[in-house]
Amino acid sequence: MSTAIVGVTGVVGQEMLSLLEDSPLGEEPPRLVASPRSAGQQFRWRDESLTVEALDSDIDLSGIDVALFAAGGSISKEWAPRFVAEGVTVVDNSSAFRLADGVPLVVPEVNGEVIPKGPAIIANPNCSTIILLMALKPIWQLGPKRLIVDTYQAVSGAGIAGLEALEREASGGEFRQGEPFPFPIHGNLFPAIGEADEEGVTVEERKMLDECRKILSSKDLIVQGTCVRVPVARCHSLAATLLFGDEDVNRLSMAAEALKAAPGVVFHDGAEAPPTPGPLSGAHPVSVGRLRAPFADSLQMWIVGDQVLKGAALNTVQIAESWSRLS
């Protein structure tokens, strides 16, 4: 199985490259692709050095089975259809195709059955959506009607520029408007990730609603909340409240047992040791803690996941691995 990484020089692309070292997709060295200005850069992979190719009209796509895209929406819109036309399956980490008709939006542990055979575009969901659904899917059969989810999102969700902004401000440097944040981030937080629509809902908040509905095939599901950028380098945290249409005193224990058995989830029992983002940077599973039911018609939980890994690179690689087993 031959792979390529498009956008290998970015934060997510670098994680993809590292993950392929231990992946069944790593039977052959991946081809590294990025913008022409990055062509010629070299990166270590196992015990060899790989050279970045330019993504331009001269690129030869022959021999590539699956390409992992981590280069942003505009690049994906332009190049993903070209790759598919050449017989290459594309797993795209951008938002370009997530809500497009006919394009599966996939978290393998949640809806892996929709992964198609043969060349196609497969979309990777937004990072917060993935982290939420890893905790929600095991208890979905309990029938929540409404979700209230507040996210506390790390600066690396905005890429290298987000990390640089936090580091610069923390070391006494200046705040630079729009590079990439609208407000200072060191010693601060702000409830604005993306533009707000006419209803006051931001892009990030809208993604969770629309993507959860598509992945769960639940067009009437309500997901609402506030997405907050926080001065944490890595790992998103979510405070989720699930509301049900009835009261059930057994729901808490059923949810706990389901989460303990869920693949890709680490359940933290007891309120004294909840998961926190610092120690979980670099962890593959999503962690769930603070599970509680203060009222019999609801559940509440705290969820932490590395948004660069399970929220992006790892989920993309796992989709590609699942696709390869079908092909």
Score class of each variant (00 low, 15 high):
N188E: 11
E174N: 11
S74P: 05
G143D: 13
A154G: 07
Q224S: 15
C212K: 08
K207H: 13
D22A: 14
A85S: 15
P81L: 02
V201Q: 14
A161Y: 06
V286H: 00
I75R: 01
D150M: 05
I59W: 10
L61I: 01
Q153R: 04
A120C: 07
P277V: 06
G40Y: 06
S49A: 12
V11Y: 09
L242Q: 06
S128K: 08
A239K: 04
V8R: 00
P24H: 00
S94K: 05
V11C: 09
Q318L: 14
G63H: 06
R292Q: 14
A255G: 10
E205Q: 15
P29G: 02
K207F: 15
I64D: 08
T89S: 12
Q41D: 09
T226D: 03
A262F: 07
W140H: 02
W140N: 02
F97N: 08
C127F: 15
G172D: 09
A80T: 06
N93A: 15
A196D: 08
A34S: 13
G118C: 02
N126M: 13
T89H: 05
D269W: 11
I131D: 00
L326M: 15
D65N: 15
Q153K: 00
Q41A: 08
N124H: 03
R82L: 06
F97R: 08
R213F: 04
F183D: 11
P30V: 03
T316V: 04
N188M: 06
W45P: 03
A96I: 04
Q141N: 14
G26L: 05
V266K: 09
A312L: 07
L25T: 03
Y152H: 12
A255T: 04
S217M: 04
G157W: 08
P138C: 04
S95I: 13
N124G: 10
A196G: 03
V228K: 00
V90K: 02
L20F: 04
L309A: 11
G118W: 04
G72P: 02
G194M: 10
G311M: 01
P119C: 07
E53H: 10
L132P: 05
P285M: 05
V107N: 04
Q177I: 13
L291R: 00
G289K: 01
V228W: 06
D101M: 02
S95K: 12
A135Q: 05
E109H: 07
L309N: 11
K214Y: 11
T9A: 08
G282M: 02
L189P: 00
L216K: 09
E247A: 14
T3V: 10
A262S: 08
R146Y: 06
L166W: 03
V91F: 10
R37D: 15
R292C: 08
